[in-house]
């Protein structure tokens, strides 16, 4: 086994990931841990992280699970104070939290508002809270997890004949996340904090596979003929958090098998 390049390593870095469940959360946590980071995962409910904590523990990696309500700036500030007290510093943020209160185009607008409360306001509040910590210490890297749906429109053909839907709020707040990333890169740039965004394509659900018709159509829309495996996102996130990418900021890195390149 070759030695790990120091540049790609997260050894000695404290990384906070918002959102530890879903298709992507556990795979990202595993990648951060394998790269040597001290990982703090923050979620709405600590109970939802129990299996992740157990799984990482069994693999010999320790993660710190924290509960936070991103609707509340006080809750975010309390999280910040706990983390700074325990770890003294924050080197990286992975913003992977998302809520999906909307299920279709015609849902009541209350679902749209609820979506914005977490996906827009909660996102900004979390990034400002921890971005300011990193700016004060003079270094850090923020990686936001958006989606290819933040740059391209909805393609109904993909979903025809399946129960799958693509509600509109997601396309709005992921698009906003991508351009806010550029704003944040400018805002924090001179203070040594880099801000980038990773835009995953569709991720294959191993435990509950997407409809066969969808999988076939989706594959054809990519250059590599398939959906992403969750582990294929970890490389991009670790890279952007690490000192291997010190001159990259304000960038959007798609991990989408070429879906948006054509």
């Amino acid at each position: 086994m070759m030695s790990q390049s120091p540049a790609f390593s997260l050894q000695g870095k404290v990384v906070i990931q918002f959102g530890g469940t879903g298709l992507l959360g556990p795979a990202l946590i595993k990648a951060l841990g394998e790269a040597g980071a001290t990982v703090v995962v923050a979620s709405r409910s600590r109970a939802s992280l129990d299996s992740l904590v157990a799984q990482e523990g069994a693999a010999g990696r320790v993660i710190h699970a924290e509960e936070v309500d991103t609707h509340s700036e006080a809750s975010l500030h309390a999280l910040r104070d706990r983390i700074v007290a325990q770890h003294q510093r924050v080197d990286g943020i992975v913003y992977n939290a998302a809520s999906r209160p909307m299920t279709s185009f015609s849902d009541n607008l209350s679902a749209w508002k609820e979506s914005m409360a977490t996906n827009a306001t909660g996102f900004f509040a979390a990034i400002r809270t921890f971005g300011d910590v990193m700016a004060a210490q003079g270094s850090g890297s923020i990686v936001n997890i958006a989606s290819q749906m933040g740059t391209i429109g909805m393609n109904p053909w993909l979903y025809e004949g399946t129960a799958m839907k693509a509600p509109p709020d997601y396309f709005f707040h992921k698009g906003g996340m991508i351009n806010l990333t550029r704003y944040l890169a400018s805002h924090y740039g001179t203070q040594g904090v880099r801000v980038n965004v990773v835009s995953p394509g569709g991720i294959f659900n191993v435990s509950k596979p997407q409809a066969p018709a969808f999988l076939e159509r989706y594959g054809k829309m990519t250059m590599l003929g398939r959906m992403a495996d969750p582990r294929e996102l970890g490389g991009a996130v670790v890279f952007l958090l690490s000192d291997a990418s010190t001159y990259i900021t304000g960038a959007n890195l798609p991990v989408d098998g070429g879906y948006t390149a054509k």
Binding site: S186, M223, A228
Partner: peptide
């Protein structure tokens, strides 16, 4: 770092991309 990232399997689902390494010049 950007070059090694794209060369390796850590970028196995990244293709057709233009990775800007510009300190934010174009952002």
């Amino acid at each position: 770092g950007p070059t090694l990232f794209l060369l390796t399997d850590s970028a196995s689902y990244v293709t057709g991309h233009n990775l800007v390494v510009d300190g934010g010049w174009t952002s």
